[in-house]
Design a protein around this nucleic acid. Structure first.
Lengths: 156, 156
DNA sequence: TATTCAATGGTCAAGTATGGTCAGAAAAGA
DNA sequence: TCTTTTCTGACCATACTTGACCATTGAATA
C-alpha cells in the first residue's frame, strides 16, 4: 500500500524524467487538487524527497502566477560532487539523507545499481544498528556481514 | 501441536515460494490481525527465523504505508560464502581481517575491483576512525564522505 | 503613488498510521 | 524441575496527513 507522499514523489519524478533540461514547474494548489490533498502535503513531499541531499533544488514564488520549480542537479555541469563532498565533511546524515544521496549518485551513474544497494544497506539502521556497536571491530563485522548478505541476494 | 510462531513462519515461507524473485512484502499489523496475535509476535518470528544466518534479510519501514520486506538469500549455490557468513556473525573483525576478506571476495569475483575498493575504504581506520563517532548520523556522514572520495578518484 | 486585496505559497503543531523494543508471564520441552 | 521458547502488553520511534494561521506578490483601485 503506497502512501500518498510516495505517489506524489513518483509523479514529480516522472515529470522530471520527461523534462529535457531536468527542470519542471508546477503549482502547489493544482498539484494538491490533482491528488486531492491539502496543499501542505506538497511541501511535505518536497522537504522529505527533493532536498539538495537528494540531488534537487526547489525554488518557489508566491502570489499571483506563483509556482514551484524543481531542478534536478546535474553533477557534471556544476561540480556538484565536490560541493557535496565539502558539505558532508564533518556533518551528520540521517538514514533518509544518506539513502537519498546514494540514490542520486546512482541516477547520475556514479554508482552501479549493485554498488548503490551495497552501500545503502551498510548505512541502514539495521547495520548501523540503533545503538552504537561496542567497538570498531564489531562494527566492521556487521558491515562485512551486510556485504555478504547483499552478494547472496537472489533479486539482484 | 505447532506453535503460532511456526505457523507464521510456514505462512511466510509459502509466500516466498510463490514470489518470483524471493522477495515478499507484508504489513505487520495485517499479519498479526490474520493470525490474531499481538504485532510484536511478528517481530519475534522475524528475529528468530528470518535472520541473515537463516538466509534472509528483512527490511522495514514505519509510518503510513509502512511495510515489512523479506528477502531470501541464495545460499544453496554458494556454500563458501555461507560458511564465511556464519563465521562473521556476532564476531569482530580487525581492519586487517576485513581487508583480507574483501580481497578474497574480490579474487573470487564476488566483488568488482571498484566495489572492493569502495568497501575497503569504508572499513578502513580512517573512516571508522579509532574512536567511535558520537552517533550514527556522524558515522554515516563519514562513510558517505569515503564513498564520494572514492568516486572522485580518477584512477578507477 | 499608495492602498487594497485576491492569488499564491510557507510553517508548524496536532493527529494518525505504521513498525520496534523490551521485560516479564506462560507454555513447551528436556 | 529446570531451561528454552513463545507470547503478551506497555511504551517508543518514525513516517505521513491535515488544518489553522502566516507571508509574499502583483494587479486593481483609490
Amino acid at each position: 500500500m503506497s502512501s500518498l507522499s510516495r505517489e506524489i514523489e513518483k509523479y514529480l519524478k516522472t515529470l522530471l524524467e520527461n523534462a529535457h533540461n531536468g527542470v519542471i514547474e508546477v503549482q502547489r494548489s493544482t498539484l494538491s487538487g490533482f491528488f486531492e490533498c491539502v496543499p501542505s502535503q506538497i511541501n511535505y513531499v518536497l522537504s522529505t524527497r527533493f532536498t539538495p541531499a537528494h540531488g534537487y533544488i526547489v525554488e518557489t514564488r508566491r502570489g499571483g502566477g506563483g509556482y514551484v520549480r524543481i531542478i534536478r542537479l546535474n553533477i557534471n555541469s556544476n561540480n556538484k560532487l565536490k560541493i557535496l563532498f565539502d558539505e558532508i565533511i564533518g556533518s551528520e546524515l540521517t538514514q533518509n539523507q544518506s539513502e537519498g544521496l546514494l540514490e542520486y549518485l546512482r541516477k547520475e551513474d556514479y554508482l552501479t545499481r549493485r554498488e548503490a544497494i551495497l552501500l545503502k544497506n551498510i548505512t541502514s539502521e539495521n547495520v548501523l544498528a540503533g545503538s552504537l556497536p561496542k567497538n570498531m571491530d564489531t562494527l566492521r563485522a556487521q558491515i562485512l556481514q551486510s556485504i555478504l548478505a547483499t552478494i547472496l541476494r537472489e533479486d539482484i
